[in-house]
Design a protein around this nucleic acid. Structure first.
Length: 451
DNA sequence: TGGTTGATTGTTAAT
DNA sequence: ATTAACAATCAACCA
């Protein structure tokens, strides 16, 4: 297997597409946040582009398309302050250190439309294929660079002292990853060679919706949709929708805790996607699955403990929710609905987003708006930690570890990873409060990690 | 079966 | 008629 890194074109420096850029995290996280808010049934927060954007803009939720406005829809205090996205030519100085001068890889930048500039990659198909290989090794960040070094004996960019615990602890895992990733890489790479060679790869099809649609695009499109047309055209619509679901859940009902795997997926996919923007959901899913498969039992248990804790929280919230329903029906049997959707609610159960709050705590919804522009995301922390000098013990799946640690963990609950990582609490804490509250407690702040 | 994500498309309500 | 907002769907995988 030929795994190589291809330096990013110099011109791309600065338009960081990774979530390591605090200024870049806004759009997707914002969208995700609002998606979750849909679930919470809260109104007043628009996911759409701000006024003035093209009507098609609502389809363009890819990173970088948001301008930082929250929509101005009169949501008032529901609005978020979205930090402006760093313009391509003005890299966030705080992130320049993240650039690998040799590979240019870390801030392997894509244009904000998410497409690889074909002029920067004259031999695009081959590079994309190889890049995918490199990226997919790289995307496993800290714990995987050893794999890269195995694959690339020259081992250019990484300090071998920074091997993750999974690798340190379990060479089996390493070989397992190698095997799994080789397989995945070949799959992804093959598909990439077949389809990503198009100027409008499927992975970015949404980034440049072509109104007219060239024949090449149509061809690609047909390839992409062969596996399954998302929505059959009206004349092809033979059978009515299954109507299988949507029982119209009460938005105030606490969200069920997600499974350990889902938690892991949530934590991991962003990093994978950022390193491999063209990866489809299927690719990411496979990668996550292989990572999950290779995850140490200890880490899995940590996730499971997390879900257990979340489950407890869920049960509590559910009890409160049901109690609130009872009391609501008792006190106001006429309009239970209006009460649900707009509760000032000293009576109501805590909102799901607060009481259960997505369990990882990585959701930007839980962050104070003022901290979003300054504090790194969990993934940022993880990637930065893994790609730079991780503090001792900050190894393995740092972004993952840091993420699942950050959750609805009850104050007295055992810290799943604290035993192996003394910095855990600090990072968890600093992320949760933006470092303002906790630096005094832990004695240092995350900038230590960033530099 | 439902959960993970993001893109896309369909539907509905409002203007 | 147009547009905004929301819902549904799809992918691979796991519990």
């Amino acid at each position: 297997m030929d795994v190589r890194f291809y330096p990013a074109p110099p011109s791309s420096v600065g338009s960081c597409s990774l979530p390591t850029d605090p200024n870049c995290l806004s759009s997707l996280d914002y969208y995700r946040c609002n998606k979750s808010r849909y679930g919470a049934g809260e109104r007043g927060v628009s996911v759409r582009l701000p006024p003035g954007a093209s009507p098609d803009g609502k389809r363009l939720l890819s990173p970088g398309n948001y301008t930082g406005q929250s929509g101005g829809n009169g949501g008032g205090d529901e609005d978020y302050e979205i930090p402006p996205i760093t313009p391509p030519n003005h890299p966030d100085p705080s992130l320049l250190h993240l650039m690998d001068p040799e590979s240019g890889y870390l801030c392997h930048s894509l244009p904000h439309n998410g497409l690889i500039n074909p002029y920067s990659y004259p031999e695009l198909p081959a590079i994309m294929m190889s890049n995918m290989l490199g990226q997919e090794s790289h995307l496993l960040s800290g714990q995987m660079h050893a794999i890269q070094e195995m694959a690339r004996p020259d081992g250019l960019h990484f300090d071998s002292a920074h091997q993750g615990p999974l690798i340190n602890q379990s060479p089996r895992i390493l070989s397992h990853h190698m095997g799994a990733l080789s397989q995945l890489n070949s799959q992804v790479g093959l598909r990439g060679a077949l389809t990503y060679g198009s100027p409008s790869p499927p992975g970015s099809k949404s980034a440049t919706p072509s109104p007219s649609g060239s024949t090449q695009e149509e061809e690609t499109d047909s390839h992409a949709k062969m596996a399954g047309e998302k929505r059959p055209s009206s004349e092809m619509m033979k059978k009515p929708k299954p109507q299988k679901k949507k029982k119209k859940k009460d938005p105030n009902e606490p969200q069920k805790p997600v499974s350990a795997y889902a938690l892991f997926f949530r934590d991991t996919q962003a990093a994978i996607k950022s390193q491999n923007p063209n990866a489809t959901f299927g690719d990411v899913s496979k990668i996550v699955a292989s990572m999950w498969d290779s995850l140490g039992e200890e880490q899995k248990q940590a996730y499971k403990r997390k879900t257990e804790a979340a489950k407890k929280e869920y049960l509590k919230a559910l009890a409160a929710y049901r109690a609130s329903l009872v009391s609501k029906n008792y006190s106001d049997p006429v309009e239970p609905k209006s009460v649900q959707s707009s509760q000032p609610s000293h009576m109501m159960a805590p909102k799901p987003a607060l009481s259960v709050h997505r369990y990882t705590g990585s959701s930007p919804c839980t962050r104070a708006p003022s901290s979003t522009s300054q504090s790194a995301t969990p993934h940022q922390m993880g990637l930065q930690a893994s790609l730079h000098s991780p503090p001792p013990g900050q190894q393995g799946f740092p972004h993952i570890q840091s993420d699942y640690q950050n959750s609805s963990q009850s104050p007295g609950a055992p810290n799943p990873a604290s035993g192996q990582n003394p910095d855990w609490d600090g990072e968890y804490c600093s992320r949760e409060c933006g470092g303002n509250l906790c630096s005094s407690v832990i004695g240092r702040d995350k900038p230590l990690y960033l530099t």
